[in-house]
């Protein structure tokens, strides 16, 4: 997946999309273009890129409506050779870096803030699909979620459990005080999402399945 790294000052190229820093009517903006894949049939390729661009625009909007700040979508261009989403550039610091450098009490507060945001997202019927701490940016005290490219508008418990699983992996792989921060995150999650405890049970069930047990990050 394409991902803005280090504030996106340079172009990024993922498996599916390329990111560019652009000027949009005098504002700094990010243009995410889903590039054509010549290996698949052109009509299938076009349909996929268009529907995914559309879906991502929708998820960004739904996320804001659910009370989770996300980049504002400036423009959706579905022309075949384009399939580009132009959105607000967030000048923030990745939660991943913050959790590593902040003193424990502040890291714990941020973790709770992350949990509450994920809880609101799931309450709003959205799963992110790639819920790592690199996809969360703190800007002026506001926590933004970015890159909904693998997301879905669904209230399925299984999808929520997978979201939590990815997030847990992100906490475990990069953050030293994993135990306490993760617990704070989950407490925030349960406080913001009524079915939070149920989703947490599903997370444990998923972890019990062969593929996920004893797995390092990845």
């Amino acid at each position: 997946m394409a991902r803005l790294r280090k504030g996106a000052r340079r172009m990024a190229q993922g498996a599916e999309a390329e990111l560019r820093l652009v000027d949009w009517m005098g504002r700094k903006a990010v243009a995410k273009r889903r590039v054509p894949k010549p290996y698949r049939l052109p009509e299938l390729d076009r349909a996929l890129r268009q529907s995914r661009t559309r879906l991502e625009a929708r998820l960004l909007r739904l996320s804001r409506l659910a009370g989770v700040p996300a980049p504002l979508v400036y423009d959706v261009d579905l022309a075949d050779d384009s399939c580009t989403l132009t959105m607000e550039f967030i000048a923030g610091e990745q939660a991943k870096r913050l959790l590593n450098r902040l003193p424990l009490p502040a890291a714990r507060r941020l973790s709770r803030q992350i949990g509450e945001a994920v809880g609101r997202l799931h309450t709003g019927g959205i799963v992110h699909g790639d819920l790592t701490t690199s996809n969360m940016l703190l800007s002026g005290g506001t926590l933004y979620f970015i890159d909904f490219g693998l997301g879905a508008a669904t209230g399925e418990l299984e999808a929520q459990g997978v979201d939590l699983r990815v997030l847990k992996e992100a906490f475990g792989s990069t953050h030293a005080h994993i135990g306490r921060c993760f617990d704070d995150m989950m407490a925030g999650y349960r406080a913001a999402y009524r079915s939070g405890a149920e989703a947490e049970r599903r997370l444990r069930e998923i972890e019990g399945r062969g593929r996920y047990s004893d797995q390092v990050e990845g």
Binding site: P36, P38, L41, P42, E43, R46, A47
Partner: peptide, 20 residues
């Protein structure tokens, strides 16, 4: 409906508007 897969250029088929 198109072309032999892989052969020729990936030109869009006329009038196709397909959503999966």
């Amino acid at each position: 409906g198109g072309r032999v897969p892989g052969a020729g250029s990936p030109s869009p088929s006329p009038g196709a508007s397909i959503v999966t």
